[in-house]
Design a protein around this nucleic acid. Sequence first.
RNA 1: GGUCCCAUCGUCUAUCGGUUAGGACAUCAGGUUUUCAUCCUGAAAAGAGGGGUUCGACUCCCCUUGGGACUACCA
Length: 505
Amino acid sequence: MSTPQAHQVRVRFAPSPTGYLHVGGLRTALYNVLFARKQGGTFLLRIEDTDRNRFVPDAVEKLVDVLRIFFHIDEGVEKREGKLENFGPFGPYIQSERLPIYQEHAEMLVKNQKAYRCFCSSERLEKLREEQEARKEPTRYDGKCCNLHPDDVKRLMKEGVSSVIRLRIEEGNDITFTDHIRGTVSFSRRTLDDQILLKSDGFPTYHLANVVDDHLMEITHVIRGEEWLPSTPKHLLLYEAFGWSAPEFAHIPLLLNPDRSKLSKRQGDVSVEEYLEKGYLPEALMNFMALLGWNPGGGATKEIFSMEELEEVFDLSHVHKGGAIFDRKKLDWINAHYIKHLDATTFFERALPFLHEKAWFQDAHDSQKTPEFLKKVFSLEQERVTILSDIGERVRFLFFRPIIDVALLPWKKNSNEETQETLRILKEHLSSFEEKNWTRATLETSLLERAGERRGDFLWPFRVALTGEKQSPPPFEVAWVLGKEETLLRIEEAIVAISDSKKVL
RNA sequence: GGUCCCAUCGUCUAUCGGUUAGGACAUCAGGUUUUCAUCCUGAAAAGAGGGGUUCGACUCCCCUUGGGACUACCA
């Protein structure tokens, strides 16, 4: 006999496959994972695909792909050799593969009078609801079928009239439970509807499937979004009807749009895939999400947490109750912070694919696509990009010779002649450089020394000549990346440009 | 309409009856050997309102207001 694992914490993330992972879902998953790890428990993934009308091809595969970038899944579904597979002792973990289980359980409830067959058509239900709304009454099932004679049920079934199974909610005490985040929550039974458990197509509704699976999979803590709080009493009633003890609940606050409504597609990016594609780092995303609604408490002001640290300190008791606006600016800051702290090699490896995606990069010269060159470019970029897809955008002049706007060249009130003279001095100075001295440090030291007090006079035309821009990394760094030959060429072009402009005048 | 949840700077939040109500993002100002970025310093910025309880409430209770979620054969 194996020891009963009554005290073993088991939590689940149970998304429905919509085609992409919602950031709110990612945070729910994160809180589940953190809670599980802290307790030394198990985190499982269950797929709630019980709505055939919303079937999206490959959605489960996509979900699994994204999720595994962030978390290790102990039980559930994963891709092995490109194929979806259930793994773990309580499978299958995909609800559409568990239909008979739900059907049996629903029938069991009917047999025990805890549920009943309802033959009302969708049309009748819809009309009923409309009438109730018109009368400003609570919309709910009127109980037409709740006391059907067994013979009638038999007859209707025989005739093939489509039917659903509804939970029978009877008079009784208020339903009260303790939520880990909200404390005691209480609902009156009278406001509860006779919830549909099994749809006419034989698929379970969320309520049935969720309760049956959480019980069968021995889930100890249900950590889910606050939108489920109002249906928790129904779930509790279901556990009771089955004669099961219910798991513990923790309803975490919602993620909000800037206008404080539930975070939605309409008002910005909600798909985790999109954030990843834009170059938000998974670890930055985790850090940011953890802080939306949770903090370590105790007056701590630390804001940067690795996943390991989070697993260490996370605690449901420090989860906030109110919803949190998804603040993109703060995410940007955290992401930039993580990027800056990446070691150069890692940054290079992770940002490179984003450069390869740029259409303009394809037109760059082969010598500018070598790792040697790109590493120099990236060293200029690391402290300047917020998201990885920013890579290269601000420094295209490193790949393509800029067109010089002569008007931009002079520093402050300097004349064209003075500027041209400066550029000549620069050219001469740089020409004398030996190739082996063409390093970042040497260039900086040497140029600053040559410029002396007149830094602006020197560095400004230098920058414009090299970049064509008013804003750029320091010109000696740009020169270092470009190399001696290209640098001298660009300076010469600027000198010529000034001469040409004089002729026109 | 009904049920439930929530309420500290613009945003994320600390505070678990006694604090000059703290931090971070964003904003603004200044500095860091030219611009951008980084970095540093500083500034402005909050307890929705009304009742209680208490020697003392941001903190506990009630009401009001405001916001949100749910109210499908969707999850």
